[in-house]
């Protein structure tokens, strides 16, 4: 291939990174898509369904992977991590390490798109919820695995499930004063899926308020409440206690101002969205800005630019849903293409 064609390194193979690499490849530039995991898809690959249309995320990942494979401008490097990166001439010099065979290789890139995604905060900082102590207190991503298992055949039918929203989020005492934005929607999705699988299950969602800002989102949540009959209880749970092999949840019904409790089998914690632990170091090597939490910060008056020749998309900037990741991926690609065509 012509070495004079400009090359972009896309770090992270989730929906944002895949979309960015795809658009760059389709525009005739070269893209190297680096993914730490053996498969592309990022967090999206782990999800069972999606909002607001109950679509199968695997279909979306499948379509994107197929399109990436069909484009000869795009090189996909899975099980690969970025070891070092530095600015070199008018671009970057990056060392990549293959995680299976340990081999490393150096590449040059004219621009970088960060799409390293997000993580969930460690909910064990809340002693009162017993995450890490009670095996049936799990976080939302772990619950996606459980949902997948249930879809394939349940060993035992759950009688009651409680979802806690704002675990970490909107808690300045734990260092997360921000709203994690996506939990309201994925919790409604998970609660609705449980009712689809087990109509007799009693599903409770504890919330402070539900934030359904998006096309079809409010309708989605209302359907989960009104048609799938998930009980929303307003109040932030205070304590999880063991009770005869099950879990007792204590909270206040803040609408009436009275303490309430429910007994369930599983408690699902919608933990705060945080950037990946190594994103800050990566950003520093590349000269990208980060905020106080470690999320990538845009330059003033830009959406997806964080430094000279450094762009970003998806969850590494802030919590975002699949649609947002795709939009930002496409936006970052557009920025890169415009930049290349100008220079």
């Amino acid at each position: 291939m012509d070495d004079r064609v400009k090359k972009v390194l896309v770090i992270g193979g989730g929906p944002a990174g895949m979309e960015a690499a795809l658009k760059i490849g389709q525009a005739g530039f070269r893209a190297v898509l680096v993914e730490r995991e053996p498969d592309l898809g990022g967090t999206l690959r782990k999800l069972v369904s999606s909002f607001p249309r109950w679509e199968n995320p695997a279909d979306l990942v499948g379509v994107k992977v197929q399109m990436l494979e069909g484009n000869r401008n795009i090189e996909r490097l899975t099980s690969t991590a970025v070891l070092t990166a530095e600015r070199f001439e008018r671009g970057f010099r990056v060392t990549l390490k293959h995680l299976n065979n340990g081999g490393s290789r150096e590449i040059r890139a004219d621009a970088v798109i960060l799409a390293t995604g997000f993580d969930l905060m460690d909910a064990s900082v809340y002693g009162e919820y017993g995450y890490g102590i009670y095996p049936n207190v799990i976080n939302s991503l772990e619950f996606e695995d459980r949902l997948r298992g249930w879809k394939e055949g349940a060993e035992s039918i759950p009688k009651g499930i409680a979802f806690f929203k704002c675990v970490g989020s909107r808690d300045r005492s734990k260092g997360f004063p921000y709203c994690s934005k996506i939990c309201c929607m994925y919790t409604a999705k998970q609660a609705g899926l449980v009712k689809d699988l087990f109509p007799g299950a009693k599903v409770y969602v504890f919330y402070m308020d539900y934030r359904a800002a998006g096309k079809g989102y409010e309708e989605f949540v209302r359907d989960v409440i009104e048609k799938k009959h998930v009980r929303y209880v307003r109040g932030r749970p205070a304590k999880v206690l063991p009770e005869k092999g099950r879990l007792l949840v204590r909270a206040e019904d803040t609408l009436m101002g009275i303490p309430v409790e429910v007994v369930v089998d599983t408690v699902v914690l919608a933990s705060a969205v945080v950037p990946r632990a190594d994103t800050r170091a990566l950003a520093k090597m590349l000269g990208a800005l980060t905020d106080e939490y470690g999320f990538i910060e845009p330059l003033p008056y830009t959406a997806v630019r964080s430094g000279e020749r450094v762009f970003f998309a998806g969850g590494c900037g802030f919590a975002c849903e699949t649609q947002g990741a795709l939009q930002q991926g496409a936006a970052a690609a557009a920025e890169v293409i415009a930049f290349f065509n100008k220079s």
């Binding site: 009693k202 599903v203 409770y204 009959h229 998930v230 009980r231 209880v233 204590r250 019904d253 009436m256 009275i258 303490p259 309430v260 409790e261 429910v262 007994v263």
Partner: peptide
Amino acid sequence: MDTEIYTPLRLDEIDS
């Protein structure tokens, strides 16, 4: 309802 404020109300059903 006010008098029983210290005994949490148990929600056994998703509706009443």
